[in-house]
Computed example of a mutant assay.
Amino acid sequence: MLPSSRPTRPQPVALAIGGLIALASAIGIGRFAYTPILPAMAEGLGLSKGEAGLIASANFIGYLLGALLAAAPRLPGSRRAWLLAALGLGAATTAAMGLVTTLPAFLLLRGLGGAASAFVLVLSSSVVLDRLARAGRPGLSALHFAGVGCGIALSALLVPAALEGGDWRRAWLATGAAAAAGLLGTAWLVPAEAPPPPAARAARPAAPVPAGPAAGWAVAYGLFGFGYVVTATFLIAILRASPALRPLEAVVWLLVGLAAAPSVALWGWIAARRGLEASLAAACGIEAVGVAASVLWPGAAGALLAAVLLGGTFMGITALGLAGGRRLAGADPTRLFALLTAAFGVGQIVGPAVAGWLHDWTGDFRLPSLLAAGALLAAAGLALGVRLPRG
């Protein structure tokens, strides 16, 4: 039985840890476990890189649809109930990937899982960040966003153990069980919130649809979605292509997670001194170097550099993008969070499908990775041209 939904006043640290667990479950595990499982899964089923990219894109199509649905101005019921339902759906679809073997089933499951992960990101960010701000502890948002890196690091330890003997199905079942444990932790640490009085609800202004600066911010966020996702999806597959680098697979993915966990705090510290726009641009530029290194610097050094630079930036950019959206949105950031997530989702949908097709055409990931690096540099340029409201 899930913990009671009776409204309580949670301690800010416990609330931030609940948000961390939610993101670890739905994003770090539910979304990114595909990367370390993919090589064994592709070998076991004979999947082409194009088919592997299509499965990844299905997850991101679901992510886009989930973000748009989460943008609905009046979801029935409480935000917490939707958050817990999305965590349950994400855990179930992750585990079910180990019970099917056909491409249509994989596409359906990853699509539903992607929708669930978008709901979790939008709703956990809205619920947790709003309540931390009201408690006077907005700095704890870095702990909330550290969940993605923690989930990736957990999957880097869990997946190789589950893959002993080459059974990719066990890896999906194990990661699904870990995601389900995250549901219980979130339910315990993120209690229900008393609804605002009717007068307050009526006076609460709706978040504006992006226009002007928000449009530029959203486009930059979409380019970032395209730019990071090729390496985030295929980094382990790139290593698997080189027999000398195969022993590094688990280490490289663990580095991605370990670098991601503190990255939001680091980039938040930088943004407090240099501004959100300049910080997001710098992070995109650094990530572009890592994406390019994954294919231009052969050997262990290039792989390790790519892992550290990818992990050290992608969640920082995500948090900086949402922080900019919060400034642009006014009182209720939920809708603009969702719209930014949707722009991000469009880039993610295109990235894996194009990368898989280009790999099957050219024989390697060099061209799609360099296109991704170019998209990140374009995002950096756009971010520098935006002027966000101060405060």
Rank of each mutant, 00 (worst) to 15 (best):
M1Y: 10
M1I: 12
S4N: 04
S5H: 09
R6P: 00
T8D: 01
A16F: 13
G18N: 03
G19I: 12
L23K: 06
S25T: 03
S25Y: 03
G28H: 08
Y34D: 08
P36W: 01
M41Y: 05
G50Y: 00
A56V: 07
A56D: 00
A56W: 01
S57F: 00
A58H: 04
F60W: 05
G62L: 08
L65K: 05
L69H: 03
P73K: 07
P76K: 06
G77W: 09
R80H: 01
A81K: 10
L83E: 06
L84C: 10
L84A: 10
L89V: 15
T93C: 00
A95C: 04
M97C: 15
T101C: 06
L107D: 03
R110M: 09
A115T: 03
S117M: 11
V120I: 08
S124H: 02
S125G: 12
D130N: 09
R134N: 08
R137T: 15
G147I: 10
C150P: 02
A153T: 08
L154N: 09
L158A: 13
G166E: 00
W172E: 06
A180S: 13
L189V: 15
P195A: 12
P196K: 04
P197E: 15
A202E: 11
P205Q: 12
A207P: 14
P208A: 15
A218P: 09
Y221P: 05
Y221C: 05
Y221E: 03
F224W: 15
V229P: 00
T233I: 07
F234L: 11
L235R: 02
I236D: 07
I236F: 01
R240L: 00
S242C: 00
R246V: 14
R246L: 08
L248Q: 14
A250Q: 07
A250P: 05
V251D: 04
W253P: 04
L254M: 14
L258G: 05
A259K: 10
A260R: 06
A260W: 08
A261R: 03
P262Q: 07
L266P: 11
G268P: 03
W269A: 07
I270L: 08
A272K: 10
R274Y: 09
G275T: 09
E277Q: 15
L280H: 10
L280G: 12
L280R: 11
V289Q: 04
V289A: 12
G290E: 02
A293K: 02
S294H: 03
L296P: 01
W297L: 15
A303P: 01
A303L: 01
L309M: 01
L309I: 08
G311V: 05
G312S: 09
I317W: 05
L322Y: 03
A323W: 00
G325F: 00
L328I: 06
F337R: 07
L340P: 02
T341A: 13
T341Q: 04
P352R: 11
V354R: 14
V354D: 05
W361G: 10
T362E: 12
D364V: 13
R366Q: 14
L370Y: 01
A372E: 10
G381N: 13
L384Y: 13
L388R: 06
G391P: 08
